[in-house]
Amino acid sequence: MFGNGINPFVIFFASILTSNMILSNFLGMCSYISISSEYKTASGLGKSVTLVMVITNMINYLVYKFLIVPLGLEYLRYIIFIMVIAATVQVMELAMDRFLPDLHVKLGIFLPLITVNCAILGTTLFIIIRDYDFLQSVLFGLGSGLGWWLAISALAAIREKMAKNKLPKGLAGPGITFIITGIMALAFIGFSGIFTIT
């Protein structure tokens, strides 16, 4: 049911809501849990993830189509994708620092963190497995990034509100965060009627 033929915009909206990277695939959890105690920081991280996802997915798509497949290196794709992501993030940070210093102040510090974010590699692999074309890949990357941003911002907002409340000792920190994430995931299931691709 995946593959060419699905409207790229359906993919875009679906990746934000119904097949959200965090809330339905549970990818990119480490930074989602650890950097979600403050809304401002979480939102900055979300934006960086979105940016990196779009760019690395485009590059990985091209690398896959024009390098990996012609050379028959499919069995090496995981290693190659990770290297490409790491290198891209590195170059992006340098370029951002040079040409967009203001943006670098806001987002740049998150870039090294994102290199090892599994949501990034996850999107690339979904694109390969589901056999998306270029436009679909770009919109899928953008949508997944925005979805990730939405989820971490929502969580951070909840945690910020919750910081004023007393919690049982054993639940404080990651414990309650996982429970909230679970409830949020349940809520996102409510969107599943809107699109049919998942």
Partner: peptide, 16 residues
């Protein structure tokens, strides 16, 4: 191929 690709990426990083 892994060496070539990582070498190429390293080159890109060094150049940038």
């Amino acid at each position: 191929s892994v060496s070539l690709i990582s070498g190429g990426l390293a080159l890109i990083i060094v150049m940038s």
